[in-house]
C-alpha cells in the first residue's frame, strides 16, 4: 500500500516535534560555524506548518507538502527558509494530485526536492551543506525503490543515508553558505542544515512506519 495524506501530515507533525526537540542542538551546530539561528528558525517554521495544517487540512500528500512549503518560505527566513521551501514545493509538484504514493513516486519526489535545493543554492556534494545529506538520501531512496522496497523501506534508506551524509560533513571545509566565510575553521563541525535534513527524513520514515503499522502493513 502507498503513502497517503495521513503519512504526509504525520511526517510534518513529527518534523515539527523533531525541530522542537533538536532546536538547541541545531542552534549549537550553527553557533560553531554560522550565526546561531538554524534551530530557532526551523522550529518557528514548523510551528507555522502545524498551524497551516490545522487551519486547512490538506486532501493529498502533495497539498500537505505545498502548504508546508509556503509556511516554511514565509516563516523560516535565512538560507534554510527558501531552500527547504523550494524543496517541499518541488516535492509537492512532483507528487501532483496523487492520493497514494508508491516507492518510485516517492523516490522521484525526494529527487525533485533535492534538485530544488541545488537549483536555488548551487551547492555541490562536499560543499558542507544540506546537499550532503539530501544527495546520499536521494541515491539510497532511488536504489531501494529500484530494488523493490516499499515506501517505508525507501524512506528508511533515505533517512539512514542522510544521517550518514550529515555526519560525513564533520571534517569538510564549507564552500557555500555562511560557514564558508570561516574557511578552514569550518572543518571539525557538523553542518546544521545537513543535520536538520537528516532529522526531517528520519521523521518521514517514522511517519511511514507508523502509517504502515496502523494500516496493518508489514514495514519491513
Amino acid at each position: 500500500m502507498g503513502l497517503t495524506v495521513d503519512w504526509a501530515t504525520d511526517w510534518l507533525k513529527l518534523s515539527a516535534k523533531a525541530m522542537e526537540e533538536h532546536r538547541v542542538e541545531l542552534i549549537e551546530l550553527d553557533r560553531a560555524i554560522g550565526d546561531s539561528d538554524h534551530g530557532e528558525n526551523m522550529d518557528r517554521g514548523f510551528q507555522a506548518v502545524l498551524q497551516k495544517l490545522d487551519e486547512a487540512p490538506p486532501e493529498t500528500p502533495g497539498a500537505a507538502l505545498k502548504a508546508a512549503a509556503m509556511a516554511l518560505m514565509s516563516k523560516v527566513g535565512g538560507a534554510a527558509g527558501p531552500l527547504y521551501g523550494t524543496a517541499y514545493l518541488r516535492a509537492a509538484t512532483s507528487l501532483g494530485d496523487a492520493t497514494e504514493i508508491d516507492a518510485e513516486t516517492l523516490a522521484a519526489a525526494l529527487a525533485a526536492a533535492r534538485d530544488g535545493v541545488v537549483a536555488r543554492g548551487k551547492a555541490e556534494l562536499g560543499d558542507k551543506t544540506m546537499i550532503d545529506a539530501w544527495t546520499p538520501a536521494v541515491d539510497a531512496a532511488q536504489k531501494a525503490a529500484a530494488g523493490g522496497a516499499d515506501p517505508v523501506g525507501v524512506l528508511e534508506a533515505a533517512a539512514e543515508a542522510a544521517e550518514t551524509g550529515a555526519m560525513a560533513t564533520d571534517p569538510l571545509v564549507a564552500r557555500k553558505g555562511r560557514a564558508s566565510y570561516l574557511g578552514e575553521r569550518s572543518a571539525g563541525h557538523r553542518d546544521p542544515g545537513a543535520a536538520s535534513t537528516a532529522l526531517l527524513l528520519r521523521a518521514a520514515a517514522a511517519a511511514a512506519a507508523g502509517s504502515a503499522a496502523e494500516t496493518g502493513t508489514d514495514a519491513v
Binding site: 550565526d35 530557532e40 518560505m73 514565509s74 527566513g77 535565512g78
Partner: peptide, 11 residues
C-alpha cells in the same frame, strides 16, 4: 527586519 541574524522572508 527578519528575526535576529535571520534574513526576512518574501512574505
Amino acid at each position: 527586519p527578519g528575526a535576529v541574524f535571520t534574513s526576512p522572508t518574501p512574505d
